[in-house]
Nucleic acid binder design. Structure first.
Lengths: 245, 245
DNA sequence: GAAATAAGTTAGTTCGTACTAACTTATTGT
DNA sequence: ACAATAAGTTAGTACGAACTAACTTATTTC
């Protein structure tokens, strides 16, 4: 394959590297692995269309890339049936997620970024930051176990809490719950929720739910709120017994 | 051109951006601009071979890319005669250099990186960091005007001290000089020089120079040193009058 | 000033990553 | 059970960015 030039993190032009590293992936390939991981967390293999939608590209492009990733041993593809990560693909995905979440934490804690506004920046930096840098950031933060949105940070070895949480949308009426984490995707939505007191750690009770994805009423502290189904689906909670704290 | 996928910093998949930004360049294109800028600092247009050598690629590849950059209005190419940056190309190059130097400073000051070991990391991050992030880093550092190697940091608007410095290699015998900056390229070389007390701010006197690129003898403080021509060429100094401090 | 050498360019190829259009396989609703 | 629809794949194309080989233009040297 020789030293052709799409190798990014390997630093082809920087001098004196004894060990050549095991061939860096492109940014795109990394992104595929990450979204496949995320989709797989839902329980089933990642469908072509779902991957395409997450990445904002055409389904046909995904078919092509999946073959390449399969050739590299990073995913297993069953034709017409979706992809799942191999062990090595999974490790890479988790390392990326680790990077992403540590970078987000660092930006918020050390550089004054808003909680709701770091996703995009981290999305780019995660592909450029070395493992060493990420470890240093983690150290500077005291090795946190969750990012500012409450998402767990995988270890360098790829261990992570994969417990499935239910979202507000799934909560039965009357239930009390603690907000554990929320999706970091949409800054607008995060700002909206924050303004309503819905942040990791908040305790809320579900009061009522209108049918047909209608508004959901809940109390946060002693304030009453009513939010839409889409917003509710982005908030993950842990159910509390009536007696809890 | 539609939303094809080589746009990096524009964040095609992240939502809610009102102003679409003026079309991000690829990493490679940015690197070309930076290298051209650096070569041009030597006084003449950047020759194809020089660019190729700096980037570690074949000269033929450079010919191709120069045409693309010319088409984008970032360089002016005279056939068989080299390239120079246009005003807009220059601005981009300077913004990259600004990023690079601020990132290096940040890594050293805030994350405990060695002075001699940040180049490679910065080289990758400079393409991923947003202007906002870089400004925040600069603020956190108190808006420094030089990076850890003594290189001046351009302003966001692209102003920078372009004064040409002489290197130790050009110094006349007997001259006293203060080290202003040194090339950040080679960590090994930097470590070597640091161990000998040759760092930005150090005062030295040139004692003797052997011909044919032979060793150069100098005093640093009261220690005597003898270094090779290559090492000497990486150290830039400011001549001092005998009376200066 | 012509021959030798160095520098630069063009042509043709490859690979990654996207695209659209056309086709095939699965799933679903009656 | 089978037609309609949805999901997925292949084929063909484009572009960026690299490569080698062959050729052209500049520069140097005798």
């Amino acid at each position: 394959m020789s030293a052709r030039a799409t190798d990014e993190r390997s630093g082809a032009r920087s001098t004196h590297r004894a060990v050549p590293r095991e061939k860096a992936l492109t940014r795109q390939a990394e992104d595929y692995l990450k979204v496949i991981y995320e989709i797989e967390q839902g329980g089933s293999p990642a469908a072509t269309t779902d991957i395409a939608e997450q990445l904002g590209i055409a389904a046909a492009s995904v078919s092509g890339m999946l073959q390449r990733l399969a050739r590299l041993g990073l995913v297993k593809v069953e034709r017409y049936r979706g992809a799942r990560l191999s062990a090595s693909g999974r490790l890479i995905a988790l390392q990326l997620i680790r990077r992403h979440r540590i970078i987000e934490s660092f930006l918020v804690t050390k550089l004054g970024y808003g909680w709701d506004d770091v996703h995009e920046e981290a999305e780019r930096l995660e592909h450029a930051a070395s493992a060493d840098l990420v470890d240093r950031m983690a150290d500077a933060l005291g090795n946190p176990t969750a990012d500012p949105h409450g998402a767990p940070i995988p270890t360098a070895a790829g261990r992570v809490d994969e417990r499935r949480l239910s979202s507000i949308a799934d909560l039965p009426i009357g239930a009390r719950a603690r907000v554990v984490r929320m999706s970091d995707r949409d800054p607008e939505l995060l700002r909206y929720l924050k303004k309503r007191g819905i942040v990791p750690g908040a305790i809320l009770r579900l009061v009522e739910r209108e049918p047909f994805d209608g508004p959901i009423s809940l109390t946060v502290g002693r304030a009453k709120q009513s939010i839409g189904a889409t917003a509710a689906a982005a908030v993950y909670v842990e159910k509390l017994a009536r007696t809890d704290r």
